[in-house]
Each structure stands twice: as structure tokens, then as C-alpha cells.
């Protein structure tokens, strides 16, 4: 484990390219991100502060603050940053590292459970099948929830990337190991 910045460049760099992640260091604290941030009006999330803390390697302080998860990834700051800091992508990568370190709420982990069980973050149930019929559609769409062999491909991806381990998924119960345990540490 290096500094938070080094880990961001490693982890996010593989997907976005290292240069993309290195833009963290271009931030000069002008505050244009926070000025246009919809979350900042309602929550303690402060984009400018987050980037300064990331530059200063304040990993634990960032990971332990609930507001890290109050960015809606709207990309307003990404579009407006005068220095070309890839803000929203940096935030997502910081969250990836936080999740890997065990800072992931039960409701967030449950989204993974739904996808592991059905292939969908929002699966279909009986009432919605009726809604589909009412508008002249097949009761069940031809997706992973309908075709087990297709769902198994998605499950295989989650196994390969160890997403199942990250959320403490139990393949026997097809649920979280400690669903009642609050935040996984």
C-alpha cells in the first residue's frame, strides 16, 4: 500500500489511464467544484476539501466520513473544473479503495446481492410482471433473471474480481454473511 494518491493511480489508472488519475495533483483549491455541487447544498460533502485531503494522504479521514457517499456522480464539477481535474472519476476511484478497505454500508452491499441473485440491481417481482402484461409486453423480459445460464456468466465475473468476497457474500444462502452487522469493517 502506497499513499492514497499512489493507490488511486494504480487502481483507477488501469481503467482510465494513469494521466487521468494524476489530475488530482492539478487541483489548486479554487472551489468551483463545491460552488456548483448539488450535494453540497444538502450534505457535508465538500468536493474541494476531499481533493485537498486526498492530496495530503488523509486516507482514514476520507474513508470514515459518511459524506464520501453523498456524491451523486452528476459530473457538474467534472465539466466545470478549470484545471481539468477528472473529479467524478477520482471520487469513484477513492470510493473503490474505501470499499476494498471494508467501508461499505449494508444497503450498498445489498445492491451486489440483488445482482448476484438476478443479474439486476432492481429485479422484477409478480406485481411488475402484471404491469408488463397490462401494456402488452411479455410478463418477464428476456434478461438474466429469466435465463439461469446467462446469470451464471454475471456471477462468474463477480467471482473472478472477488466482488463476492468484498461484500461478504455467502453463496449458500445467496445473501450477505452478516446482513444485520451494520457497516463491514
Amino acid at each position: 500500500m502506497g499513499t492514497l494518491y499512489e493507490d488511486m493511480v494504480d487502481h483507477g489508472g488501469e481503467v482510465f489511464g494513469k494521466e487521468h488519475m494524476e489530475t488530482l495533483m492539478l487541483c489548486v483549491q479554487c472551489g468551483k467544484c463545491t460552488g456548483g455541487c448539488p450535494s453540497g447544498r444538502y450534505t457535508a460533502f465538500r468536493t474541494r476539501k476531499l481533493f485537498r485531503m486526498a492530496q495530503e494522504d488523509m486516507r482514514e479521514e476520507i474513508f470514515n466520513a459518511p459524506e464520501l457517499w453523498f456524491c451523486s456522480t452528476c459530473f457538474t464539477c467534472y465539466e466545470r473544473c478549470p484545471k481539468g481535474v477528472k473529479t467524478t472519476d477520482l471520487i469513484r476511484v477513492i470510493r473503490n479503495l474505501a470499499a476494498k478497505a471494508g467501508h461499505m454500508s449494508v444497503p450498498h452491499r445489498m445492491i451486489g446481492v440483488y445482482v448476484l441473485k438476478t443479474g439486476h440491481a432492481v429485479p422484477i417481482g409478480e406485481p411488475q410482471m402484471k404491469l408488463r402484461e397490462e401494456v402488452g409486453l411479455e410478463s418477464q423480459p428476456p434478461t438474466t433473471q429469466k435465463y439461469k445460464e446467462q446469470l451464471e456468466q454475471v456471477q462468474e465475473i463477480f467471482r473472478t474480481t472477488h466482488y463476492d468476497a468484498m461484500i461478504d457474500f455467502d453463496w449458500n444462502t445467496m445473501n450477505l454473511r452478516e446482513a444485520e452487522g451494520g457497516e463491514k469493517k
Binding site: 487502481h11 451523486s72 470510493r95 473503490n96 470499499a99 450498498h108 439486476h120 474480481t161
Partner: peptide
Amino acid sequence: SCCPAPGVFGSFDM
């Protein structure tokens, strides 16, 4: 399957 949601799964594990 799910797309999967870019701000959600993208935030958990790229």
C-alpha cells in the same frame, strides 16, 4: 443484465 449502474458499481469496484 444490469448495465451495471455507473455511479453505483463504478463507485464500488471499477
